[in-house]
Simulated scan of single mutants.
Amino acid sequence: MFNNKSIFEKSNISQYICLFYKDFQSYCEEKLKEYNLTNGLYYYLIYIYKKPGSKLNEISKFMNVDKSHTTRAIQKLISFDYVEKQVNEDDKKSFNVYPTEKCKLVMEEMVDLFPKWEERFLKDFSNEEVELLRSLFKKAFKNIID
Rank of each mutant, 00 (worst) to 15 (best):
E101Q: 14
D66G: 11
D66L: 02
F62T: 14
K76V: 12
E89H: 07
K61Y: 06
K102S: 06
Q75W: 04
V106Y: 02
Y49W: 09
N96P: 02
Y98V: 08
K67Q: 14
S68K: 13
P99G: 04
K85D: 00
Y82L: 09
S60E: 10
Y82K: 09
V65F: 03
H69R: 01
Y82W: 09
Q86S: 08
I74E: 01
Q75S: 14
Y47H: 13
K85G: 04
A73W: 00
K33A: 14
Y42H: 13
Y82Q: 03
S60D: 06
C103A: 15
I48Y: 00
Y42D: 08
M110C: 10
L32N: 06
E108L: 15
L32H: 03
Y98L: 12
P52Y: 10
N88M: 03
E34F: 03
V106N: 02
E109I: 04
P99K: 04
Y82T: 08
Q75I: 10
L105T: 13
G53F: 12
Y44F: 12
K51F: 15
E34D: 15
G53W: 11
K76P: 01
V111T: 13
L41F: 01
N88L: 04
N36G: 11
D112V: 00
N36E: 13
V97Q: 03
L37A: 04
V87K: 15
K76Q: 08
K55F: 06
Q86L: 07
V87C: 11
A73C: 10
P99Q: 07
P99D: 07
Y98Q: 05
T100H: 02
I48A: 01
S60W: 03
K61A: 12
L37C: 07
V83N: 05
K92R: 08
K102L: 09
E101D: 12
L41I: 03
N96G: 10
Y82H: 05
K33E: 15
D112N: 14
N88E: 06
D91W: 00
Y47T: 04
I48W: 00
D90G: 03
K51G: 10
